[in-house]
């Protein structure tokens, strides 16, 4: 290889980069795939023979319920984020440029703050003796404290709180690109506000919606510390199941299989995102 002698720097860089990614990205992922088709072993974690038991267990109706419940909570989280984030991003994109930048900055400040600490702050608010209850009771709106902490709702609130910026940012970027002429054209062609929204705005912002969904839905299935703190170790997420399999129950094949299902979900979402972007690209051209 003449290039080695000619370009030692290039070779060194490529070897380092490839080495790192192969060793710490490719190899571990292959290991997980491998582990998912092996047999649980109480001593060494995994052993031969190869089989698909872990996947079968995953689709056992009993476990399926766990997954569907987790998916339901993640979906609710995503929906709430979308409902809050969509008008938010729209309203944001209509402001002056300078103000937009400041508000975006304010949006990512919480994201840079420790997420555990923020979850804990929510706990202080939601507790029976917490600030929300004591304020509402102080105002005389309720007599009995509301039970908010350790409920499914608390988990969803926690997830929304942590993940909202990830929905808003991609939405904001599509609204920012939304060309005013298109809206005017739609208006000129006689479309009402609602028709313009359905036929022009929604399709054009779809890639942003999908990107946001992708960025929210997947973490919303994995952030195991949220149910631990706000859900009273109930209302588990797929992340909790995976963590338990690895750190408590020691059923690695099952945990690995569960995480592969997560990865596949991600792949499907990414594909959808890509397709929608391509479609928009064609239409826009």
């Amino acid at each position: 290889m003449p290039s080695i002698t000619r370009q030692p720097f290039r070779t060194a860089v490529l070897v380092l980069v490839w080495g790192w990614l192969l060793f710490l990205v490719l190899a571990p992922n292959l290991l997980v795939v491998g582990a998912s088709v092996m047999t649980r072993d109480p001593g060494t974690f995994i052993s031969l023979p190869l089989n698909l038991d872990a996947y079968r267990q995953l689709f056992d109706p009993l476990y399926l319920e766990v997954f569907l419940h987790s998916l339901y909570m993640a979906a609710m989280t995503t929906l709430v984020c979308l409902l809050i984030g969509y008008p938010f991003a729209w309203a944001l994109s209509k402001l002056g440029k300078q103000r937009q930048l400041l508000l975006i900055f304010l949006l990512i400040v919480p994201f840079w703050t420790n997420s555990l600490v923020r979850t804990y702050a929510l706990k202080m608010l939601l507790a029976t003796n917490g600030l929300i209850n004591s304020s509402l009771m102080g105002l005389g709106w309720i007599d009995e404290p509301l039970q908010m902490l350790y409920t499914e709702g608390a988990v969803i609130i926690g997830l929304v709180y942590l993940l909202l910026p990830f929905m808003i940012l991609p939405l904001y970027s599509v609204f920012d690109d939304l060309r005013q002429e298109l809206l005017l054209a739609s208006h000129d062609l006689g479309a009402g506000r609602f028709a313009t929204f359905i036929h022009v705005i929604v399709p054009l912002t779809l890639p942003g919606v999908l990107a946001g969904v992708m960025l929210v839905l997947l973490p919303a299935m994995g952030l195991f510390f949220v149910p631990d703190i706000l859900g009273g170790s109930r209302n588990l997420l797929v992340g909790n199941v995976i963590k338990n399999q690895f750190l408590d129950a020691r059923n690695w094949p099952f945990g690995a299989a569960a995480s592969i299902v997560l990865t596949i979900t991600m792949a499907i979402l990414m594909l959808a995102h890509r397709l929608s972007k391509q479609r928009i690209g064609e239409e826009g051209a």
Binding site: Y63, V66, H69, S70, E152, N235, L236, D248, A249
Partner: peptide, 19 residues
């Protein structure tokens, strides 16, 4: 024993993730 523990573990997870 480990075998019984697995049975417990399965129901335990189902119990905690149910509503």
């Amino acid at each position: 024993g480990d075998e019984a523990l697995q049975v417990y573990a399965k129901y335990w997870e189902m119990l905690k993730s149910g509503r």
